[in-house]
Design a protein around this nucleic acid. Structure first.
Lengths: 196, 196
DNA sequence: GATTAACCGGAGCAGTGCTCCGATTGTCAA
DNA sequence: TTGACAATCGGAGCACTGCTCCGGTTAATC
């Protein structure tokens, strides 16, 4: 198929070496961020990927861009999961199950809860859109639960996002409390129920 | 009074210049930490105090030591306040009021909630003892409230500490949510009440 | 006023994030 | 096949960080 001269310039596919480097960077980032958290040294990531520092910054201008690439699939899946749960579970169960899964994902890497929370104040962050979709997904489940009267009406999707992140943050910050994790989760969730 | 040769060596008072430098360092730290948070550059602190970097590290070997000195009085006061409230208010009121004040103090500096939370896993930290006293003060109020049956019995002082810090962390991390602060506080607190 | 232990300051090291630009290389037309 | 060129690369370099170490200074004491 010949290229169309006046067409809106279909972006040419990236060069093979560029694609290869990008893949190597993502693989290196995945292991290092898993081991050391979201604050892992970018120099180390480049080194492990067998690539110069400039190459890393060209592919991922900010740390958030790199994290976004790392978290993309995981969070896509989580958003889809919200709809699945909404279709197959009672509203309350759907909400609590999804929130539970969200707290697990939000705590996937050390330092991630803080990074996610910070995007609230920074619309420029590459993670902002990702977090927005999470809030919307959670918001739908929340609305359904509120419709049924099992969750207080004065709880917003933002409240939910903040509290879920805060729960992830607790165990992220103090591994000692890992065993209290589910207990704290239940305590906070109980606070969202209407008082009879 | 002549000094006693064999006595357990009463620690000699610090040299005047040392005391002066210490004061300057604390003043500089107070302003810089207020402006920039617990991660303020220690070089800047020393510079502002008109003192060498070595001097800072001699007086405060770790960042936590510096913060401990900065927070000492404030937290002493908070611990005392717990007893005052216990003596003058009904148990539930005493607990919620104190927790509210705690969340304010824990959020006094940007980054402080995270620093406080981290001491749970680090008994060597200079802040560890300070946090322990906070947990004990809160624990006394908690026990009284549980005695009266207004707080669930499966809530521990550690749970309380973690949740209060998490609440402080939310507004610390996302200033946007400052207006939801009291609302979130009430939500979480409601979760601690026994369900009828 | 002399002695000395306590104290001081900052040079120096290893690490960080990020930029910038000369060298290299994949790709596509001739 | 062979250019030519744009896309891509890699790391030197800058400004910053935490922290150590040690020769010089000074306050307190005899």
């Amino acid at each position: 198929m010949p290229r169309e001269p006046h067409a809106p310039a279909e972006p040419r596919a990236p060069r093979a070496d560029a694609q290869r480097n990008r893949d190597h960077l993502l693989a290196a980032a995945a292991t290092l961020v898993t081991e050391q958290g979201t604050q892992a040294s970018l120099r180390d990531v480049a080194r492990r990927a067998g690539v110069g520092l400039g190459t890393l910054y060209r592919h991922f201008p900010t740390r958030e861009d790199l994290l976004e690439a790392l978290l993309g699939r995981r969070f896509e899946h989580l958003a889809a999961r919200a709809d699945t749960l909404a279709a197959t579970e009672p509203a309350e169960r759907a909400l609590t199950d999804w929130l539970h899964e969200f707290t697990l994902d939000a705590g996937a890497y050390h330092g991630l809860p803080a990074t996610l929370m910070a995007t609230l104040s920074d619309p420029e962050s590459a993670l902002h859109a990702l977090c927005l979709r999470m809030r919307q997904a959670g918001g739908r489940l929340l609305a359904a639960a509120q419709q049924e009267g099992v969750i207080r009406p004065d709880v917003t999707a933002l409240d939910l996002f903040a509290l879920a992140n805060a729960l992830s943050w607790i165990t992220d910050q103090a591994p000692t409390l890992a065993e209290r994790r589910d207990h704290l989760f239940r305590l906070v969730l109980d606070g969202l129920r209407p008082r009879p």
